[in-house]
Amino acid sequence: MPEDLRDRFAQAAALLVRGMDPPGLIAPDTRERIARARVWLARDIGAALRRPAGAGILRALARGADGRPARAETVATCAQLVAAGYETTVGLIGNGMHALLQHPDQLAWLTAGGHSEQACAAAVEELLRYDPPIQLAPRCALVDADIAGTPVPRGTVVFVLLGAANRDPRAFPEPHRLRLDRQPRHLAFGLGAHYCLGAALSRLEATAALTHLLARRPRPTGHPVSYSPARIARSIQSLHVRLDPAEGHRGSVAAER
Rank of each mutant, 00 (worst) to 15 (best):
A108S: 04
G248P: 08
V253A: 10
L239E: 04
I147E: 02
Q183V: 06
G56S: 08
F189Q: 04
G24N: 08
V157Q: 13
V158G: 12
S228T: 09
H176R: 15
F9L: 05
C78T: 13
L49W: 09
D66M: 03
A119L: 15
L25F: 12
I93P: 09
R33T: 09
L214G: 00
V90L: 14
L49M: 06
S228E: 12
F9C: 08
R51N: 00
L81P: 10
L15Q: 14
E125L: 15
R177K: 06
T221M: 13
L15T: 14
R51Y: 00
L178Y: 15
I57C: 06
S116V: 08
I57S: 07
R33F: 04
A123H: 07
A188W: 05
R234K: 03
L58A: 09
W40Q: 01
G64I: 11
V17L: 06
T150D: 12
D168N: 12
L180K: 01
R43G: 15
G46R: 00
A171S: 05
R43Y: 10
P245W: 02
R219W: 09
R170S: 14
S235L: 15
G67D: 09
S202H: 02
H186N: 14
H98G: 02
V39G: 02
F9K: 02
T88Q: 10
A137L: 14
E32K: 04
R8C: 09
V152G: 01
R167C: 04
L92V: 15
L110P: 05
R59D: 06
V152I: 14
A148M: 08
E87I: 05
G190V: 03
N95F: 05
V17Q: 07
I26Q: 09
H98N: 11
Q102A: 11
L180Q: 03
